[in-house]
Design a protein around this nucleic acid. Structure first.
Length: 427
DNA sequence: TCTGGGGTCCTAGGACCC
DNA sequence: TCTGGGGTCCTAGGACCC
């Protein structure tokens, strides 16, 4: 059997942890640039605050009900996420935990002591809450897709289920699938949901599970659709995955706080994003061969769909893969020259690193040129200092110092657990 | 008039996830 | 006036090869 452990309203729970008076009160957390709502407490959901909706639209409702509002604080969430995952690794052993996202992970329960799966689920939930203060829901089933469905039901009926749902017999599975709308199935997104409901009159997960794998192949994305239907039927196709696999693409992209027209500002932003992406690259001991840059123009025509349009991108393939910030910034900034159009206003830019391979400069070796070894040491020093002091105490000059383009983040809470100056104090 | 049959690699784009 | 920031996998189609 497998399980999925999913933190309840994760970002909101993190904020509440240090402000206990917000318990039982409506809370929301905003995306970067304070643009959208990306996490809501149960109370906020009840008030009708929409998920992923623009903040400015929800603002009247938020102010009317005095909803506590926070800009996202990824330092805090990242640290608490690590604590939750580490708790599970201690309980089950590293090899049985697959971190799937910042707030959820799959567990392999085979070999975990105890016969009663529900008791096991409760124990996991209670231990995580006790050790970290974060509440989680647990879904237990034979396949990953069914675990997700179980988890969904646990969250929907927190009181009755104690946040734990087990699907270990075909009767329970059938019953659960009948209660699950097809839109809520893991792997069915907006497009497929519309197709299924209005094209084929399929409304529940149960009905979907009765379709043939051939149907899945034809209409739900080829092999992806086949897997989906098999997993719903209780036939495991998706295995636990090895987490040590490195990222194949690394991106750093941001909206600007305000639209920018000046090429120098855009270059600064792109240089800064490149530094960030290069840090991520070095953290996984990789190097990249391809640097892509994109910019997004501010829409003049408001009738146009706000995403997708106005994106202009280009890439450079380097002669050799590198992980050195300076070697990545140079082509990135040159790409800006290519993409920039005088007189345009831009609202967003991004850098993507791909063509990722293991970093051959890691082992400073005798045969590499002297400069390569020095470069690697320099990068290590910069990363260490920036990590232990504060972000960006050391940076490349191309990143600039003014940051007119910097994102808005007006409501961020302190980084209680990762910065000495902001440590939570008890008096 | 009639123009094969396979294979590989790469890229762009679509769908999905959180 | 104001709409995030990451990722993954898969497929189709083009270029190229013999």
């Amino acid at each position: 059997m497998k399980a999925i452990v999913d933190c309840n309203n994760f970002y909101c729970s993190c904020e509440r942890l240090f402000l206990p008076h917000l318990e039982k009160k409506p809370v929301v957390v905003l995306s970067n640039n304070d643009g959208c709502i990306i996490s809501r407490s149960d109370e906020a959901k009840k008030l009708g605050v929409a998920m992923a909706g623009p903040y400015f639209q929800a603002k009247p409702l938020i102010e009317k009900h005095n909803v506590a509002t926070f800009s996202s604080n990824y330092n805090l969430y990242g640290d608490l996420s690590w604590r939750v995952m580490e708790t599970l690794r201690i309980m089950l052993g590293k090899e049985n935990v697959e971190v799937y996202s910042v707030d959820e992970c799959f567990l392999n329960l085979d070999g975990f002591p105890g016969n009663d799966m529900y008791e096991t689920g409760l124990k996991i939930r209670e231990t995580v809450e006790c050790w970290t203060g974060i509440r989680v829901s647990v879904g237990i089933a034979p396949t990953k897709v069914l675990c997700k469905a179980a988890n969904h039901l646990a969250k929907k009926n927190k009181e009755a289920t104690q946040c734990v749902v087990v699907l270990d017999t075909s009767e329970k599975i059938t019953d659960a699938l009948k209660k699950t709308p097809v839109d809520d199935v893991w792997g069915v997104g907006r497009k497929y949901a519309v197709k299924l409901k209005y094209g084929w009159n399929v409304h529940t997960a149960f009905e979907l599970s009765k379709l043939s794998p051939e149907f899945g192949h034809k209409f739900l994305g080829g092999v992806v659709g086949v897997r989906l239907i098999k997993e719903l039927r209780g036939e495991p196709v998706l295995d636990m995955e090895n987490e040590l696999v490195n990222k194949k693409m690394i991106a750093t992209t941001r909206m600007f706080g305000n639209p920018v027209g000046n090429i120098a500002d855009i270059k600064e932003a792109v240089a800064t994003y490149t530094s960030r992406a290069a840090e991520k690259l070095r953290r996984q001991y990789s190097a990249a061969k391809v640097v892509s840059v994109f910019v997004v123009t501010k829409e003049q025509d408001h009738l146009l769909n706000f995403n997708r349009h106005g994106t202009i991108s280009s890439f450079t393939t380097l002669p050799a893969a590198t992980s050195f910030t300076n070697e990545l910034i140079k082509p990135a900034v040159e790409l800006v020259d290519q993409l920039y159009d005088e007189g345009q206003l831009y609202k967003k830019a991004g850098v993507m690193l791909s063509g990722i391979v293991p970093d051959s400069s890691i082992q400073a070796n005798l045969f590499a040129p002297e400069t390569t070894n020095c470069g690697r040491k320099l990068m290590e020093m910069i990363d260490n200092i920036n990590f232990s002091q504060r972000d960006d105490i050391l940076k490349f000059a191309a990143s600039g110092t003014t940051r007119d383009w910097k994102m808005r983040q007006e409501l961020r809470s302190p980084r209680y657990t990762t910065r000495w100056e902001e440590l939570f104090e008890v008096h």
